[in-house]
Amino acid sequence: MLYIDSISKGIVIDHIRPGNGFKIFKYLGLNKADFRVALIINAQSKKYGKKDLIKLENVMDLDLTMLGFIDPNITINIIQDEKVVKKIKLSLPEEVEGIIKCKNPRCICSEERQIVHRFVLIDDKKGIYKCDYCEQIYSWEG
């Protein structure tokens, strides 16, 4: 059994879908962190069988929109004095800007230089987004 210390102050990013842990680790730039970080892959989960999780012994600002977009199943626990003081359940954001690019060659996005690619959630169960401009469909599942 792998043992990782509990933290007294920091953030636990829990219930990450297996495989997404490293993606989020990279997205948060944790390889360059100067505080203690644990990335745990394929931990046991009662809910999902397996999960990834990340423990940060630090308080940092997290972009919940982006994290929710990468993995809507995530729970974020804020730890103080070894207790969970706040639990944030993420979900798919209603709108994402500058994260996905519209690939429709007929879309105005392909022509305007300074346009911000914007996608709007149209089905939160299936994770389907549409381009705000041309309505091209983007599905998370691919």
Partner: peptide, 10 residues
């Protein structure tokens, strides 16, 4: 009127 989709929305 514009040949690209979504131009009026922008």
């Amino acid at each position: 009127r514009h040949p690209k989709e979504g131009a009026p929305k922008l």
